[in-house]
Design a protein around this nucleic acid. Sequence first.
DNA 1: ACGCTATGTAAACGATTGCTGACTTGCCCA
DNA 2: TGGGCAAGTCAGCAATCGTTTACATAGCGT
Lengths: 197, 197
Amino acid sequence: MTTSTAGTRRRDAAATRRLLLAAARRRFAADGYTATTVRDIATDAGVNVALINRYFTSKEGLFEACLTGVGDELGRTVAQDMPLERIPLDIAARLAGPDAGEYRIQLLLLLRSSGDERAERIRADILRTFADRLATATGWRPGVAGAGERMLRAQITLASAMGITLLRSSTLEPLASAGQEELTGPLRDLFTALLRP
Amino acid sequence: MTTSTAGTRRRDAAATRRLLLAAARRRFAADGYTATTVRDIATDAGVNVALINRYFTSKEGLFEACLTGVGDELGRTVAQDMPLERIPLDIAARLAGPDAGEYRIQLLLLLRSSGDERAERIRADILRTFADRLATATGWRPGVAGAGERMLRAQITLASAMGITLLRSSTLEPLASAGQEELTGPLRDLFTALLRP
DNA sequence: ACGCTATGTAAACGATTGCTGACTTGCCCA
DNA sequence: TGGGCAAGTCAGCAATCGTTTACATAGCGT
């Protein structure tokens, strides 16, 4: 570990970029965009403040980088050619499973707004493709009969997942500390009721 | 209308207090706590900035006043001795009915955080009583068998409603512009699946 | 009618914000 | 091994934040 106590860290642009991104994601997700200061992020990452502007141009740029990062990760993992009956289990795992902390950050980031127009578009794109995949898993196709309500139901499902994430992070008990096994039942009921083909 | 174009408004402490509260609710709900400036609120209300501190002590005090106001209004109207089968219809009306604008502000305010400890407690109290009422409508009682899961399901229902509100305000189509009649069906499915006694 | 108080106004305070420029210093390659 | 450039540091800028203070005035009670 070169970054142990004392001593200057080895110079590595890519590594500090990653450090900044990770710290920014945590802060933005937990506190929101405006409440997070660039000095907070830099301190968390153990990095000089000015490097944020060097590597990401601005605070807005850093936020956009966080969003596109989340988009990439969700794009690779979520509901990718997944049978409909596995989805409730998968989402329950994301909400309360072993890696729930990382997923919660991703979902919360999608609910944080910076006011910047470009960032808003990125966020909207991610949400839309997310919903599209969910809808496709339920048999949705662009022109088919009832496509409108199918898409609507997929988006309501997505909204429920995000609402649960949000209320879990507000320490509303017993929801906040409910484990994966307790969430799976209700979630299966919720999803089958909304997405049944 | 004494407040028409030009001319000083008639002096009325209670009235300007109301103006400030209304403007603050809209701003806090739409933009969040930190992103909202006291000058924004004062301009919206057509009132001098310093009066915020006179009537509400601080920006935090104004935010707390907004929250307790929402708590009072929701406390009087939501799920008050309501039969279980009416609840989906009622919530659909709140999400997309004629007064949806006002209700959306109230729900969004409950998701905005100021970081202030006292405000967080107020918010948590409102959410908890909200969930309690929902749970009670489904037959929940403090000691009865399965009380834990009943409360959990009520909170998940609440979370879904708030998630829908949140995604509707992010202009996610078709969810954002879905009317009351389109929302009622999916919501009834969702609620009966979660709250069936 | 007049004076006192509640109400509203204007200007500025110190603190904090995002960001920049000039600078040091570590590291790779010739 | 040393020159050159990328990587990191430091101090301070202008703008904006919430708040306060000193002042003006409308309106009510006598």
